[in-house]
Amino acid sequence: MRITGRRENRDGQEVLVLTRKFRAGIEDVWAAVSDPDRMRRWIGTWSGDPAAGSIAFRMTAEGDDVPEEVYDIESCEPPGRFAVRSRAAAPFSEDGSGERVHWALRVDLVEKDGVTTLTFVQALADGPLGPDMVASVGPGWEYYLDRLVAAMDGTDVDAVAWSDYESGSAAYRALFTD
């Protein structure tokens, strides 16, 4: 797997940044990443009233057993930007024994000449958890963003196979190891 993510420091915080380009207008891409019905095609869905400041999000692409998580909306500026933070700190490790982290996510959209660039940013935990966390979430976000590309292109989202992304863990860990 070729990784497309990059490491950045934004305001003193280590972040993972991934981009994708779409031959589509910004409004169409905005709908794909914010409308619950369109999101269901590639990642999950949400419920609630964003005007109240939070939503409940559930990843449907991982099966029916995944619980809803509440995300507080830190900013929402249609059709160009939104940022959310998980309300509950989730255990990072697969077995639930690791450090608990909040998921801080941001999406920025910019359109130029009929091409919309999506920039996805996830803040990472400080310290040794950073490389371990990115080894997991880096390939995961590659997978989900490629599912978004498929959904936008009208191709079979289920043809994007998770098994093609699992090998990216070592490369992502190396990217974030000093």
Rank of each mutant, 00 (worst) to 15 (best):
M1F: 14
M1K: 13
R2D: 15
R2W: 11
I3P: 12
T4N: 10
T4G: 09
N9D: 15
N9F: 12
R10I: 13
R10P: 08
V15T: 12
V17I: 14
T19Y: 06
T19P: 03
A24Y: 06
G25W: 03
E27R: 12
W30P: 05
W30A: 03
A31R: 14
S34Q: 02
S34H: 02
D35E: 05
D35M: 02
D35W: 04
P36C: 01
P36I: 01
P36L: 02
P36Q: 00
D37A: 15
D37W: 10
D37K: 15
W42D: 00
T45L: 11
W46I: 12
S47A: 09
D49L: 06
D49S: 09
D49M: 03
P50A: 08
A51G: 07
A52T: 07
G53P: 04
I55R: 11
A56M: 11
F57H: 04
F57N: 00
F57A: 01
T60W: 03
T60M: 02
T60D: 04
E62M: 14
G63F: 08
P67L: 01
E69Q: 15
E69A: 15
V70N: 13
Y71Q: 10
Y71F: 15
Y71D: 09
S75I: 05
E77T: 11
G80T: 15
A83V: 07
S86T: 05
A89D: 10
P91C: 01
F92Q: 01
S93P: 05
S97P: 08
G98T: 11
E99Y: 06
V101A: 11
W103D: 14
A104W: 15
L105S: 10
V107S: 03
D108G: 06
L109I: 08
L109C: 07
V110D: 15
D113T: 09
D113K: 10
G114A: 12
G114C: 12
G114E: 10
L118W: 08
L118P: 11
G127N: 04
G127M: 06
P131W: 05
P131M: 03
D132R: 12
V134H: 00
S136W: 11
S136L: 11
G138C: 03
P139G: 05
P139L: 02
P139N: 06
Y143M: 08
Y143F: 15
Y143W: 13
Y144Q: 05
A150C: 01
A151L: 07
M152K: 00
G154T: 00
G154V: 01
G154C: 00
T155H: 04
T155Y: 04
D156C: 02
D158H: 04
D158F: 06
A159E: 08
V160K: 05
Y165M: 03
S167V: 03
S167D: 14
G168R: 00
A170H: 09
Y172P: 04
Y172A: 00
R173L: 02
R173T: 09
A174P: 01
A174Q: 13
A174F: 05
F176Q: 01
T177L: 07
T177M: 06
D178I: 06
